[in-house]
Amino acid sequence: MAADYMRQKLTNFTETVFPTNPTQENRQHHMIRPGNELVSSLPLQIALYFNVYFFPFWLLTCVVILALKFQHLEQLFQFVIITIYIVISGTEAMRLYLGYLGNLQERVPELAGFWLLTLVLQLPLLVFLLAASGGKPTPAEIGVHIIFLIFLLSEIVVGFFALKVMSRQQVMKFHLQEFDDILNPNRDQSESSRYEPLR
């Protein structure tokens, strides 16, 4: 009796703090059938979570240090570094959004886009910022670049395995759906006839 009371109070508190749409919640329960496995990657989600909070700190540090050393850089490196910061900043918001969407909602195209943006665009640009001696990197810049590089490398490795598992799961769901359609050929007709208007 006390356990039911506590469960009800906890449920009421949770619904007050985190309001949900009951029709959407019921629809989600119907979508997840028994036997379907959720394959979202927890390590990838943890890396994305901390990356979201670290990125503004990285950007602020880089902008402040660039403003301090801007006059001491060659004109070519002034242009290149500003361009790289703009590209990284614009890409990072889109990359993190695709990572969250692809991982939490198990969408393979979004997760693949996140992984490709990380591997093909963000990683080479960050390595260039670390390796280019003409940019005159300061110790603070090197420190935040290395932390950002660790985030990118971990997301590449974990994202690869998450993408592999998720794509395998989606292929299996597709084949199970085809198998289900073969076993129950009249199911689609009965469902469509149920929604036909009465004449």
Rank of each mutant, 00 (worst) to 15 (best):
G143D: 11
L66D: 06
E196S: 09
N184K: 11
V171Y: 13
C62S: 15
Q8T: 13
S193G: 05
R95N: 14
L101H: 00
E37M: 06
L38A: 09
R168I: 09
A112C: 09
E15S: 11
C62W: 01
G134Q: 11
S167L: 02
P124E: 09
V144E: 07
N26I: 02
G99C: 11
E74L: 09
D188P: 06
T83A: 02
A3T: 14
E196A: 10
P124M: 06
D188V: 12
V63P: 05
G134F: 10
G134K: 08
R27G: 04
L163M: 04
L59K: 05
I156S: 09
E141F: 05
M1I: 13
G99E: 05
V108I: 08
G99D: 01
I81R: 02
I146H: 01
Q8K: 14
L101N: 04
M6E: 15
Y49G: 11
L119E: 09
N12L: 14
A67D: 13
W115C: 05
Q78L: 08
V144C: 07
F77M: 13
E92G: 03
H175F: 13
L121P: 00
M172G: 07
R33I: 04
Q24D: 15
K164L: 09
L198I: 10
A162P: 01
F79S: 13
V80Q: 07
R107F: 01
I142A: 06
R187A: 12
E196C: 07
V120L: 13
Q169K: 12
L104M: 13
Q24S: 12
E74T: 09
L60D: 12
F151V: 07
Q169H: 10
R199A: 07
F70D: 10
L44K: 10
S41W: 03
Q122D: 14
N103K: 10
S167P: 00
S167H: 03
F148Y: 09
I46G: 10
T14L: 09
L126S: 06
A112H: 07
R33A: 04
Q45K: 08
H29L: 03
W115P: 01
E191Q: 15
F50D: 15
Q78F: 07
N103L: 03
D188Y: 11
N12Q: 15
F70V: 08
T16G: 12
I142G: 04
Y85T: 01
V120Y: 11
N51I: 00
I32V: 03
H72A: 15
L125W: 05
L130G: 01
L153G: 06
S41F: 02
S192Y: 10
P137S: 05
S154A: 11
V158S: 03
A67R: 08
I32R: 01
S40C: 12
R33H: 03
S193C: 11
Q24I: 13
T23N: 15
M1W: 13
S40L: 08
F50H: 14
A47M: 14
I81K: 02
F161I: 01
R168K: 14
L111Y: 01
Y195G: 09
F18T: 00
N184F: 08
S41I: 02
L42N: 13
W58R: 00
S40I: 05
A93T: 14
L101S: 03
M31Y: 06
W115H: 00
V39G: 04
Q177S: 03
T83F: 00
F174G: 00
I81T: 05
M94Y: 15
Q105V: 04
P43M: 02
Q75D: 10
Q78P: 07
E178D: 15
A67N: 12
Q24W: 07
N186I: 08
Y49C: 08
